[in-house]
Computed example of a mutant assay.
Amino acid sequence: MMVADLIEVLLVEDDPGDVLMTREAFADNKVKNNLNVVTDGVEALAFLRREGKYADAPYPDLILLDLNLPKKDGREVLAEIKADEKLAHIPVVVLTTSGANEDILSSYRLHANAYVTKPVDFEQFIRVVRQIDDFFVGVVKLPRP
């Protein structure tokens, strides 16, 4: 993939502060991308399946997924993504406050591509999100549908 390509990222996050910090990290980064945000698990699956108001939603190249979500928990969303042959190839980075080993283990068992614990410090959070962006957008070859 060429760096000039527009990368579509889906952020599944219900915390407005974390959404704002993620937008900030992406806005200042050198790699061109488009950050789409949904705030719960049901909305995430509707976006990915292009249902209802998401009929014209862009197809994401990368998903940043919080585990603790309203309506449908992030673990359930991850399981549904990886069980759906149309979605399973999309890299999913779990980006959550939980550092619990059981959450890490269950996420990888559900085929998460990476598990990242959100730093509470603003500058560290920005740095971590930029590193995810740099790695998945600048280093990794992402599949195109």
Rank of each mutant, 00 (worst) to 15 (best):
I63A: 02
E80Y: 03
A79V: 06
S98Q: 09
L69C: 04
P58C: 08
E102T: 11
R75L: 10
G99V: 05
E80M: 09
D103T: 00
P58A: 13
L105R: 12
K71D: 12
P70Q: 06
A88E: 15
S107N: 08
H89N: 11
L67M: 08
H89E: 12
S106A: 12
L78H: 03
K82Q: 11
V92R: 09
G99H: 12
R75H: 14
K71A: 12
P70Y: 01
L69Y: 01
A100L: 15
E76I: 10
L67R: 05
E76Q: 15
Y108A: 00
I90N: 00
K71M: 12
L67V: 03
K71Q: 14
K82P: 10
D61H: 14
A88T: 12
A88V: 13
K86S: 14
L69S: 02
A88L: 13
Y59I: 11
K86E: 13
A79L: 11
A100P: 05
H89R: 13
T96M: 04
V94C: 05
I63P: 09
S106V: 10
Y59P: 04
G74S: 02
S107R: 07
D66L: 00
G74C: 02
L78T: 00
S98D: 07
Y108E: 05
N68K: 13
S107E: 09
S106G: 02
L87Y: 01
L62N: 08
E85Y: 14
D103R: 06
Y108W: 11
Y108F: 15
P60I: 01
R109H: 12
A79I: 05
L69T: 07
P91F: 07
D84Y: 03
K82H: 10
N68I: 09
I81H: 06
I104P: 01
E85C: 12
A100T: 05
L95K: 03
V92K: 09
G74P: 07
G99Y: 11
I81E: 07
K71W: 06
H89K: 14
S106Q: 14
I104D: 01
L95F: 14
D66Q: 01
G74L: 01
G99I: 04
Y59S: 12
I104S: 00
L62F: 08
S98A: 04
D73F: 04
K82R: 14
A83S: 15
S98N: 08
I104E: 02
L78C: 02
H89T: 02
L65H: 04
L64D: 09
E76K: 10
L87M: 09
P91L: 03
P91G: 09
D61Y: 03
E102N: 11
N101T: 14
L78V: 00
K72M: 14
R109S: 07
T96W: 05
L62Q: 10
R109F: 11
G74W: 00
E85T: 14
E102K: 13
I63L: 02
D61P: 05
A88I: 12
L69P: 08
N68Y: 11
V92Y: 09
G99N: 15
L95P: 07
V77C: 05
L64N: 06
T96S: 06
K72E: 11
N101G: 04
E80K: 08
